[in-house]
Design a protein around this nucleic acid. Structure first.
Lengths: 241, 241
DNA sequence: AAGTGGTCTAGACCACAGC
DNA sequence: CTGTGGTCTAGACCACTTC
C-alpha cells in the first residue's frame, strides 16, 4: 500500500486508486468498471472529478470509453506501437508476429546495467531470458530480457516451450503485470561472432540494437530488454508529438 | 476560411478557432492569449468549455499554461523530441545543434514520392533543399527536404547563407508555418559513393536513414525530409505511449 | 488587492446502447 | 424506457503571480 499524498488533487488520487484496482485485478481487461455516477457516490465526489480521473487513464491507454455502454479496461494492445519493432522487412502492412524460442532462462543477481535501468539495487534477484525470434524460419531478433524476480516468479514455474510467441500477454495472465508504456533507444553496432552465428549473418554485419525499458500502470519500470537484429532488413516507425 | 461543422462540439470548434488565430499570427509565439474568462465572454460560452478547448491545445504542445500568469503560445520547441535525432554520438546530455550548410536550393515539380508523402498532386511546385549538417567540423547528416512552394515562398527570397542552423524557426518567422508533430521512419542502408564522399565515409559504410513527415497546427503535412548519417555514431531515443 | 489558472461541485440536457 | 457516457453551464473556492 502506498501513501496517497493528501495534498495531491482529488482526481489524481482517484486516478491512482483506479489504476491500483486494475493492477490488483479487481477489474480485469475487457471488463467494464462501475459507472461514473457509481464511482462518484462511492468516493463521495462529483461526477466531473471522476471524469477527470478516467480521462487520464483513457489518455494513458488503460481504459476505453464506449458511449452508452460503459468504461472498459483495455486488453493488452497487441497491434499498438509497443509492437512496432517487429516490423522487420515486410513494410507492406500485414505485421506478422515472429515465432519465439526461449534459449535460456535463469535467475541472477542484477548486474549494474540492468539494476540501474530497472531502478533496483544492484544484486536484486532477477530473471534473465534469452530469446530468438524468427520470421518465416529466418532469425530476425536476438533478445536479452531482465525482469525482477519477485514480480515475475510465475515464469519460473512454466515450461519455456509453453511461453508462446508474445511475452506481454504472458506477463499479464501469469504475473499480473501490465505494460502500458516504454522507452526505446536505438543504435547500430557490428555483429560479434556469437551474435552473427545466432542470427545467421556474416561476422561484422551491421546490427540494429533496440534497448527497451517497459513501464507498468504505476509508471514503474518492470522489464528491460536488449534486442539485436540485422540492420539491413529493418524499418522503424514513430509518431512524435 | 473553413466551414466549422455546427454539429461538432463547442469546445472542438473553439479549439479550431484558437488554432486558426495562432496560425494567422493574431497571437505570436511567446505571447499570452486572452484569459479564460475573457475568451468565455467573448465567445458567449462557459469558462469550462474554454478550458476544454485550451486543454487540447496544451496537450498538442501548442499552448502552455502558467499558473497565475496566463496561457502562452509556445515557441518552437527546440529541446523537444522533434529535435531528437540530432543526438548523434554525444550521449552525455548536452545536445549540441549541428551547424548547417545549404548545398542546393531549387524549385521543382513534385516527384511522386514527395507528392504522395505531402498529399499533393504530382507535379505541384515544390522547393527542394539539400543540407549538410556538421558537429565539430565533422559531417553527421546529409538532408534532402521538400516543401510546398506556395507555403514556403519566402525561402526563395532569402540568401542560403542566411538560413541559420535550424529550419523550423525560419519556417515560423518567415513563412508563418509551425511544425507541431511529425512521423519518422528509420532504416539502414549502405552509402553510395556520392553519399560517402559527402559524409566523408568509406563507400559501403552503413548509413541510418530517417524519413520525416512534419505536420502543422491544422494537422496537414507541410515538410518531407530524408536525412542520412553514419550509422555507427547514431543513437535515437523514443518514448512510446 | 487584483487577476490568472487549478480544483471541485451540482445539475441540465443530449446521444447512444440495449432491453 | 433506462442507464451509460458526452457536452455545457454557473459558480465557489484555492494557489500562484504581479503590482
Amino acid at each position: 500500500m502506498t501513501f496517497p499524498d493528501a495534498r495531491l488533487p482529488l482526481y489524481q488520487r482517484l486516478r491512482d486508486d483506479l489504476a491500483g484496482r486494475i493492477t490488483r485485478h479487481e477489474w480485469r481487461p475487457g471488463e467494464s468498471i462501475p459507472s461514473e455516477a457509481e464511482l462518484a457516490s462511492a468516493h463521495g465526489v462529483a461526477v466531473g472529478t471522476v471524469r477527470k480521473a478516467i480521462d487520464q487513464l483513457v489518455a494513458e491507454g488503460v481504459l476505453e470509453r464506449q458511449h452508452g455502454r460503459g468504461t472498459f479496461v483495455r486488453r493488452a494492445q497487441f497491434n499498438s506501437s509497443l509492437f512496432r519493432f517487429f516490423r522487420f522487412q515486410s513494410e507492406q502492412g500485414e505485421r506478422r508476429v515472429p515465432e519465439s524460442h526461449i534459449l535460456r532462462r535463469e535467475t541472477m543477481a542484477a548486474p549494474s546495467a540492468a539494476a540501474s535501468a530497472l531502478r533496483l539495487p544492484e544484486g536484486t534477484p532477477l530473471i534473465f531470458l534469452s530469446r530468438l525470434r524468427l520470421l518465416g524460419g529466418e532469425p530476425v531478433l536476438a533478445e536479452e530480457i531482465w525482469l525482477e524476480q519477485v514480480r515475475f516468479d510465475a515464469l519460473l514455474r512454466l515450461e519455456p516451450s509453453d511461453f508462446g510467441d508474445l511475452l506481454y500477454p504472458l506477463y499479464e495472465e501469469r504475473c499480473g503485470q501490465v505494460v502500458i508504456s516504454a522507452e526505446e533507444t536505438l543504435s547500430v553496432e557490428v555483429a560479434s561472432p556469437l551474435q552473427a552465428r545466432l542470427l545467421r549473418l556474416e561476422p561484422q554485419s551491421p546490427l540494429i540494437v533496440i534497448e527497451r525499458l517497459a513501464f507498468d500502470l504505476e509508471r514503474r519500470p518492470i522489464e528491460w530488454r536488449r534486442s539485436r537484429g540485422p540492420a539491413n532488413r529493418f524499418r522503424y516507425h514513430v509518431e512524435i508529438h
